[in-house]
Protein backbone atom coordinates (compact mmCIF):
# COMPACT_ATOMS: atom_id res chain seq x y z
CA UNK A 1 0.00 0.00 0.00
CA UNK A 2 1.59 3.24 -1.10
CA UNK A 3 1.70 6.11 1.39
CA UNK A 4 -0.36 8.84 -0.20
CA UNK A 5 1.13 11.67 1.83
CA UNK A 6 2.74 14.19 -0.54
CA UNK A 7 5.75 14.77 1.74
CA UNK A 8 6.41 11.09 1.97
CA UNK A 9 6.29 10.77 -1.78
CA UNK A 10 8.52 13.77 -2.21
CA UNK A 11 10.99 12.25 0.23
CA UNK A 12 10.91 8.95 -1.70
CA UNK A 13 11.72 10.81 -4.90
CA UNK A 14 14.54 12.68 -3.15
CA UNK A 15 16.01 9.43 -1.88
CA UNK A 16 15.87 7.70 -5.26
CA UNK A 17 17.41 10.65 -7.12
CA UNK A 18 20.04 11.06 -4.43
CA UNK A 19 20.91 7.37 -4.72
CA UNK A 20 21.20 7.57 -8.48
CA UNK A 21 23.44 10.61 -8.54
CA UNK A 22 25.63 9.33 -5.74
CA UNK A 23 26.13 6.10 -7.61
CA UNK A 24 26.87 7.76 -10.93
CA UNK A 25 29.42 10.14 -9.42
CA UNK A 26 31.08 7.55 -7.23
CA UNK A 27 31.46 5.19 -10.17
CA UNK A 28 33.19 7.91 -12.16
CA UNK A 29 36.94 8.49 -11.97
CA UNK A 30 36.60 12.28 -11.76
CA UNK A 31 35.80 12.55 -8.06
CA UNK A 32 38.71 10.34 -7.11
CA UNK A 33 41.14 12.34 -9.21
CA UNK A 34 39.85 15.50 -7.54
CA UNK A 35 40.25 14.05 -4.07
CA UNK A 36 43.74 12.85 -4.91
CA UNK A 37 44.77 16.26 -6.26
CA UNK A 38 43.29 17.94 -3.19
CA UNK A 39 45.16 15.62 -0.85
CA UNK A 40 48.40 16.14 -2.75
CA UNK A 41 47.97 19.91 -2.36
CA UNK A 42 47.29 19.40 1.34
CA UNK A 43 50.41 17.29 1.59
CA UNK A 44 52.36 20.09 -0.06
CA UNK A 45 51.15 22.45 2.66
CA UNK A 46 52.24 20.05 5.39
CA UNK A 47 55.52 19.37 3.62
CA UNK A 48 56.16 23.10 3.60
CA UNK A 49 55.64 23.14 7.35
CA UNK A 50 58.13 20.31 7.78
CA UNK A 51 60.74 22.03 5.63
CA UNK A 52 60.34 25.28 7.50
CA UNK A 53 60.70 23.55 10.86
CA UNK A 54 63.78 21.74 9.71
CA UNK A 55 65.37 24.97 8.54
CA UNK A 56 64.33 27.23 11.41
CA UNK A 57 64.14 24.67 14.21
CA UNK A 58 60.93 26.25 15.49
CA UNK A 59 57.60 26.66 13.73
CA UNK A 60 54.65 28.32 15.40
CA UNK A 61 51.18 27.66 14.02
CA UNK A 62 47.58 27.44 14.97
CA UNK A 63 46.50 24.00 14.05
CA UNK A 64 48.87 22.74 11.37
CA UNK A 65 46.04 20.72 9.88
CA UNK A 66 43.79 23.75 9.36
CA UNK A 67 45.42 24.82 6.12
CA UNK A 68 45.50 21.31 4.55
CA UNK A 69 41.88 20.76 5.56
CA UNK A 70 40.93 24.10 4.07
CA UNK A 71 42.73 23.38 0.81
CA UNK A 72 41.22 19.93 0.44
CA UNK A 73 37.66 20.88 1.33
CA UNK A 74 37.71 23.95 -0.92
CA UNK A 75 38.98 22.02 -3.94
CA UNK A 76 36.54 19.15 -3.49
CA UNK A 77 33.59 21.45 -2.85
CA UNK A 78 34.46 23.44 -5.98
CA UNK A 79 34.39 20.25 -8.03
CA UNK A 80 31.14 19.06 -6.48
CA UNK A 81 29.48 22.44 -6.95
CA UNK A 82 30.50 22.43 -10.60
CA UNK A 83 29.28 18.92 -11.31
CA UNK A 84 26.04 19.54 -9.42
CA UNK A 85 25.52 22.52 -11.70
CA UNK A 86 26.33 20.43 -14.77
CA UNK A 87 24.03 17.62 -13.60
CA UNK A 88 21.03 19.91 -13.38
CA UNK A 89 21.84 21.70 -16.64
CA UNK A 90 22.25 18.44 -18.51
CA UNK A 91 18.94 17.14 -17.23
CA UNK A 92 17.29 20.21 -18.68
CA UNK A 93 19.39 20.27 -21.85
CA UNK A 94 18.59 16.69 -22.83
CA UNK A 95 15.06 16.87 -21.38
CA UNK A 96 15.47 13.93 -19.05
CA UNK A 97 14.12 16.21 -16.31
CA UNK A 98 10.88 16.28 -18.21
CA UNK A 99 10.82 12.49 -18.25
CA UNK A 100 11.41 12.47 -14.49
CA UNK A 101 8.55 14.85 -13.97
CA UNK A 102 6.15 12.61 -15.85
CA UNK A 103 6.39 10.61 -12.66
CA UNK A 104 6.07 11.58 -8.98
CA UNK A 105 8.93 14.08 -9.04
CA UNK A 106 8.64 17.82 -8.65
CA UNK A 107 11.23 20.60 -8.79
CA UNK A 108 12.04 20.49 -5.09
CA UNK A 109 12.45 16.71 -5.03
CA UNK A 110 14.71 16.83 -8.06
CA UNK A 111 16.99 19.57 -6.75
CA UNK A 112 17.05 18.29 -3.20
CA UNK A 113 17.92 14.84 -4.45
CA UNK A 114 20.90 16.15 -6.41
CA UNK A 115 21.88 18.39 -3.50
CA UNK A 116 21.90 15.54 -0.98
CA UNK A 117 23.76 13.29 -3.42
CA UNK A 118 26.62 15.74 -3.70
CA UNK A 119 26.74 16.42 0.01
CA UNK A 120 26.90 12.67 0.50
CA UNK A 121 29.83 12.49 -1.92
CA UNK A 122 31.53 15.26 0.00
CA UNK A 123 31.27 13.09 3.09
CA UNK A 124 33.04 10.32 1.18
CA UNK A 125 35.80 12.78 0.31
CA UNK A 126 35.88 13.86 3.92
CA UNK A 127 36.39 10.26 4.93
CA UNK A 128 39.52 10.16 2.77
CA UNK A 129 40.64 13.43 4.31
CA UNK A 130 39.96 12.10 7.77
CA UNK A 131 42.12 9.06 7.11
CA UNK A 132 44.84 11.23 5.60
CA UNK A 133 44.74 13.61 8.60
CA UNK A 134 45.01 10.85 11.15
CA UNK A 135 47.86 9.25 9.26
CA UNK A 136 49.60 12.63 9.11
CA UNK A 137 49.15 13.04 12.85
CA UNK A 138 50.57 9.59 13.49
CA UNK A 139 53.41 9.55 10.96
CA UNK A 140 54.58 13.14 11.39
CA UNK A 141 53.73 13.51 15.09
CA UNK A 142 51.55 16.51 14.36
CA UNK A 143 49.16 16.24 17.24
CA UNK A 144 45.45 16.67 16.83
CA UNK A 145 42.84 18.39 18.88
CA UNK A 146 39.08 18.39 19.00
CA UNK A 147 39.01 21.73 17.21
CA UNK A 148 40.05 19.97 14.02
CA UNK A 149 36.88 17.89 14.13
CA UNK A 150 34.78 20.99 14.48
CA UNK A 151 36.42 22.30 11.31
CA UNK A 152 35.54 19.01 9.56
CA UNK A 153 31.97 19.57 10.61
CA UNK A 154 31.72 23.16 9.40
CA UNK A 155 33.37 22.20 6.11
CA UNK A 156 30.38 19.95 5.38
CA UNK A 157 28.05 22.92 5.73
CA UNK A 158 30.39 25.02 3.59
CA UNK A 159 30.35 22.38 0.86
CA UNK A 160 26.55 22.25 1.10
CA UNK A 161 26.43 25.97 0.40
CA UNK A 162 28.73 25.60 -2.61
CA UNK A 163 26.65 22.73 -4.02
CA UNK A 164 23.46 24.75 -3.50
CA UNK A 165 25.13 27.63 -5.30
CA UNK A 166 25.96 25.28 -8.18
CA UNK A 167 22.30 24.27 -8.39
CA UNK A 168 21.20 27.89 -8.51
CA UNK A 169 23.62 28.75 -11.32
CA UNK A 170 22.37 25.73 -13.26
CA UNK A 171 18.75 26.79 -13.02
CA UNK A 172 19.65 30.41 -13.71
CA UNK A 173 21.88 29.62 -16.67
CA UNK A 174 19.65 27.12 -18.49
CA UNK A 175 22.39 25.75 -20.74
CA UNK A 176 25.26 23.72 -19.30
CA UNK A 177 28.01 25.97 -20.57
CA UNK A 178 26.28 29.14 -19.38
CA UNK A 179 25.67 27.65 -15.95
CA UNK A 180 29.29 26.62 -15.57
CA UNK A 181 30.54 30.02 -16.70
CA UNK A 182 28.27 31.78 -14.19
CA UNK A 183 29.41 29.43 -11.42
CA UNK A 184 33.09 29.98 -12.11
CA UNK A 185 32.82 33.72 -12.70
CA UNK A 186 31.00 34.42 -9.46
CA UNK A 187 33.40 32.31 -7.41
CA UNK A 188 36.34 33.95 -9.15
CA UNK A 189 34.87 37.33 -8.31
CA UNK A 190 34.40 36.44 -4.64
CA UNK A 191 37.95 35.11 -4.42
CA UNK A 192 39.44 37.84 -6.56
CA UNK A 193 38.00 40.60 -4.41
CA UNK A 194 39.65 39.14 -1.32
CA UNK A 195 42.98 38.65 -3.04
CA UNK A 196 42.90 42.16 -4.49
CA UNK A 197 42.04 43.52 -1.08
CA UNK A 198 45.04 41.77 0.45
CA UNK A 199 47.35 43.10 -2.25
CA UNK A 200 46.10 46.69 -2.20
CA UNK A 201 46.04 46.91 1.60
CA UNK A 202 49.74 46.10 1.64
CA UNK A 203 50.64 48.66 -0.98
CA UNK A 204 52.52 51.76 0.18
CA UNK A 205 50.59 54.97 -0.18
CA UNK A 206 53.00 57.46 -1.59
CA UNK A 207 51.23 60.79 -1.44
CA UNK A 208 50.44 62.91 1.61
CA UNK A 209 47.64 61.92 3.95
CA UNK A 210 45.17 64.61 2.98
CA UNK A 211 45.11 64.14 -0.75
CA UNK A 212 42.81 61.61 -2.39
CA UNK A 213 45.38 59.06 -3.38
CA UNK A 214 43.82 56.67 -5.88
CA UNK A 215 45.18 53.71 -3.97
CA UNK A 216 43.42 54.91 -0.81
CA UNK A 217 40.16 55.22 -2.67
CA UNK A 218 40.56 51.75 -4.18
CA UNK A 219 41.56 50.36 -0.81
CA UNK A 220 38.53 51.83 0.94
CA UNK A 221 36.22 50.61 -1.79
CA UNK A 222 37.74 47.14 -1.68
CA UNK A 223 37.46 47.07 2.11
CA UNK A 224 33.71 47.67 1.85
CA UNK A 225 33.27 45.08 -0.89
CA UNK A 226 35.42 42.60 1.02
CA UNK A 227 33.27 42.95 4.12
CA UNK A 228 30.22 42.17 2.01
CA UNK A 229 31.99 39.26 0.33
CA UNK A 230 32.96 37.84 3.71
CA UNK A 231 29.29 37.48 4.53
CA UNK A 232 28.41 36.06 1.13
CA UNK A 233 31.31 33.73 0.46
CA UNK A 234 31.11 30.26 2.03
CA UNK A 235 34.90 30.04 1.85
CA UNK A 236 35.29 33.25 3.83
CA UNK A 237 32.88 31.91 6.41
CA UNK A 238 34.93 28.71 6.71
CA UNK A 239 38.09 30.75 7.29
CA UNK A 240 36.33 32.81 9.93
CA UNK A 241 35.05 29.65 11.58
CA UNK A 242 38.60 28.32 11.72
CA UNK A 243 39.74 31.62 13.26
CA UNK A 244 36.95 31.38 15.80
CA UNK A 245 37.99 27.83 16.68
CA UNK A 246 41.62 28.90 17.08
CA UNK A 247 40.46 31.77 19.30
CA UNK A 248 38.19 29.44 21.24
CA UNK A 249 35.37 31.78 20.36
CA UNK A 250 32.47 29.35 20.17
CA UNK A 251 29.94 32.11 19.70
CA UNK A 252 31.87 33.21 16.63
CA UNK A 253 32.00 29.62 15.43
CA UNK A 254 28.27 29.14 15.82
CA UNK A 255 27.65 32.45 14.07
CA UNK A 256 29.70 31.36 11.06
CA UNK A 257 27.98 28.00 11.08
CA UNK A 258 24.61 29.74 11.18
CA UNK A 259 25.52 32.01 8.28
CA UNK A 260 26.53 28.98 6.21
CA UNK A 261 23.28 27.21 7.01
CA UNK A 262 21.30 30.30 6.03
CA UNK A 263 23.29 30.64 2.80
CA UNK A 264 22.52 27.01 1.97
CA UNK A 265 18.82 27.40 2.62
CA UNK A 266 18.53 30.64 0.69
CA UNK A 267 20.39 29.20 -2.30
CA UNK A 268 18.34 26.00 -2.27
CA UNK A 269 15.08 27.83 -1.88
CA UNK A 270 16.05 30.22 -4.65
CA UNK A 271 16.93 27.44 -7.04
CA UNK A 272 13.69 25.55 -6.37
CA UNK A 273 11.65 28.71 -6.82
CA UNK A 274 13.46 29.65 -10.01
CA UNK A 275 13.08 26.18 -11.49
CA UNK A 276 9.37 26.21 -10.65
CA UNK A 277 8.99 29.50 -12.49
CA UNK A 278 11.13 28.50 -15.47
CA UNK A 279 9.72 24.97 -15.70
CA UNK A 280 11.34 21.72 -16.74
CA UNK A 281 11.40 22.80 -20.34
CA UNK A 282 13.15 26.14 -19.69
Amino acid sequence: MINQNAWYQRWNAIKVIRGRYSQVTLEHLGIYVTIAIALVMSTLAIHNTLRFTERNVVFVARQPLFLPIFICTVLVSLYLGAIASVSVSRERDRKTLEALMYGPVDESAFLLGIFLAHVQIFLVALAFLFIWSNLAVWLLNLGISLEVYSVFFVSVVMASAIVAFGLLTAVWGDKTRTALVIFILILLFLTGVQIADQIVSNMVVSSNPTSNDPILIIRNALAIVTRLVQWLSPYAQLIQAMDAVANQSWIGFITNLGVLVIQTFVLLFGSVKLLTIKGARG
Partner: peptide, 11 residues
Protein backbone atom coordinates in the same frame (compact mmCIF):
# COMPACT_ATOMS: atom_id res chain seq x y z
CA UNK B 1 56.58 13.60 3.77
CA UNK B 2 57.03 11.16 0.90
CA UNK B 3 54.72 8.68 2.63
CA UNK B 4 52.03 11.34 2.84
CA UNK B 5 52.30 11.99 -0.89
CA UNK B 6 51.84 8.29 -1.47
CA UNK B 7 48.79 8.17 0.76
CA UNK B 8 47.34 11.17 -1.06
CA UNK B 9 47.32 9.25 -4.34
CA UNK B 10 45.37 6.30 -2.92
CA UNK B 11 41.94 7.74 -3.85
Amino acid sequence: AWIMYLIATLP
